[in-house]
Simulated assay, not measured.
Amino acid sequence: MVRDVKGVGAVALALSMVVSAPALAKEGGDQYPHGGEGFMAGAVPPPGFYLLGYGVDYRGELVDADGDEVAFPGQDPISLRVDGIAARAIYTSPYQILGGYWGAHLIVPFFDIEVDAGVMSQRKSGIGDITFSPFILSWHWPEWHLATAVDIYAPTGRYKAGDLANIGANYWSFEPLVAVTYRNADGWEASGKFMYNIKTENPDTDYQSGDEFHMDYTLAKNFDNWAVGVGGYFVHQIQRDEVNGVEVADSIRKSFAIGPQVKYDYENMSFIAKWQHEVYSRNTFDGNRINLKFIYAF
Rank of each mutant, 00 (worst) to 15 (best):
D250W: 07
A249L: 02
D286M: 08
W226P: 05
H277V: 01
Q237M: 13
Y266M: 09
R253Y: 12
A249W: 00
M215H: 03
L292M: 05
I290M: 07
Y280A: 13
F285H: 04
K274L: 01
M215A: 15
L219D: 09
S270G: 10
D250M: 05
Q261I: 04
V228E: 04
N288W: 06
A227R: 12
Q237A: 09
D224Q: 15
D241S: 14
F271M: 08
M215Q: 11
R240K: 15
I272M: 06
R289W: 01
A273K: 00
Y233F: 15
F223G: 14
I238S: 15
T284H: 08
Y280F: 13
A273W: 00
R253M: 10
Y266C: 08
N222I: 09
H236Y: 09
Y280R: 11
K263N: 05
F294K: 02
G229H: 12
L292Q: 02
A273E: 03
L219H: 07
S281M: 03
F223N: 10
I258V: 10
D265K: 05
L292S: 02
H214T: 02
A227L: 12
L219Q: 08
I252P: 00
A249F: 00
S255L: 13
M215R: 03
Q276D: 04
K221A: 12
V228P: 03
M269I: 07
V279L: 13
A227G: 14
K263E: 04
I258Y: 08
D250V: 04
Y266D: 04
V235A: 11
V246C: 04
H214F: 13
D216W: 02
E212Y: 10
N225A: 14
S255Q: 14
Q261C: 07
V228W: 10
K263D: 03
F256K: 09
R253E: 11
L219N: 07
T218M: 09
K254V: 05
Y280H: 13
G287V: 04
N288D: 14
I258E: 06
R240I: 07
P260F: 14
V248N: 00
D286C: 07
A257R: 02
Y280M: 09
F285R: 01
G232N: 11
N225D: 15
P260G: 11
M269H: 06
Y266Q: 09
G232V: 08
F294N: 02
F294S: 02
V246S: 07
I290H: 00
F256Y: 13
V246M: 10
E267Y: 03
D224W: 14
G287T: 03
K221F: 10
E267T: 06
H277N: 06
N222M: 10
V246W: 02
K293C: 02
N288Q: 10
S255F: 02
F294T: 13
G287L: 05
E278S: 04
D250T: 03
Y280I: 08
N244K: 00
N222L: 10
L219E: 12
V230D: 10
G259Y: 00
V248E: 03
A220W: 15
K293T: 06
F271E: 04
A227P: 08
E267K: 11
S255H: 06
N225L: 11
I252R: 07
G229E: 13
H236P: 06
N222A: 13
D265L: 03
H236E: 15
Y217W: 15
V246G: 03
N283V: 06
A257C: 12
F223A: 12
A227W: 07
D216M: 03
A220F: 14
K221I: 10
